[in-house]
Design a protein around this nucleic acid. Structure first.
Lengths: 119, 119
DNA sequence: CACTATACTGTGTGACACAATGCATATAAA
DNA sequence: TTTATATGCATTGTGTCACACAGTATAGTG
């Protein structure tokens, strides 16, 4: 049985992950590189999570991919499509709306904290 | 087959929902009331989503409940516990960190938009 | 009678975590 | 030099969990 806290983190990441990936892929990158990038950004992600996500986003035509076999190891490069750019903008808007909603809700609680004090 | 956009909204809501609920329950409320509140806040939630969520949060001892049978229809009131208050604070911090990560990623893309321009 | 208020349950789907597999290269140890 | 270990890179499979949606149920209200 997972801890309450971990479960929340997982659920939260789950939504943010696609957004993060599609933001990163403004420039062409390959999967393994993305994992490193995101982990450095503090966004933990497993291979078994990212690779299927990439394929899913490609299936939705938000990304395209190409194989690079010239180098030492074959790499699959992904990059955002025009449709992806459009969708990304609407996702960012959705995200922003959610942030505002939570900020609003948080401003009504007693022990105001993280969101409003910081920044 | 759901639209790409809807799928994202669902995933995003999924994480935010518990946070929103636990913020709302600073004051005692019953389920149906919470649904109305959240829908007014622009956070769509189905009964089949909220009621199980409430029970789950209660199972994790972040909420407690009591039945109010005096009124016309029986209502189950929920309110946050001390543990819930603690956890809520850490969830808010997690949420804030994720926001920062996305903002960071967004600031590197070409068509900067929603998050940084607004507010 | 239809509608609202209030709560619950059940089924399908989708995505994640985790773990394992596979293979190639680079590095370290023997 | 041969062997062993680690790293780069991607895939697949299993279990779990939470949501959406659609029901069920009951008691009031218009």
């Amino acid at each position: 049985m997972k801890q309450v806290f971990e479960k929340f983190e997982i659920e939260m990441r789950r939504g943010v992950m696609q957004l993060a990936v599609i933001c990163l892929l403004d420039n062409e990158k390959y999967g393994y590189e993305i994992i490193k990038n995101l982990n450095e950004s503090g966004l933990k992600v497993e291979e078994g999570t990212l690779y299927p996500l990439l394929r899913r986003l490609e299936g939705d035509e938000l990304l395209t991919s190409r194989w690079e076999t010239g180098g030492p190891r074959p790499r699959k490069y992904y990059v955002i499509t025009d449709l992806g750019i459009e969708i990304r903008m609407s996702w960012l808007n959705t995200f922003k709306t959610l942030i505002d909603t939570v900020k609003q809700l948080e401003s009504n609680i007693q022990d105001k904290g993280a969101l409003n004090n910081a920044q």
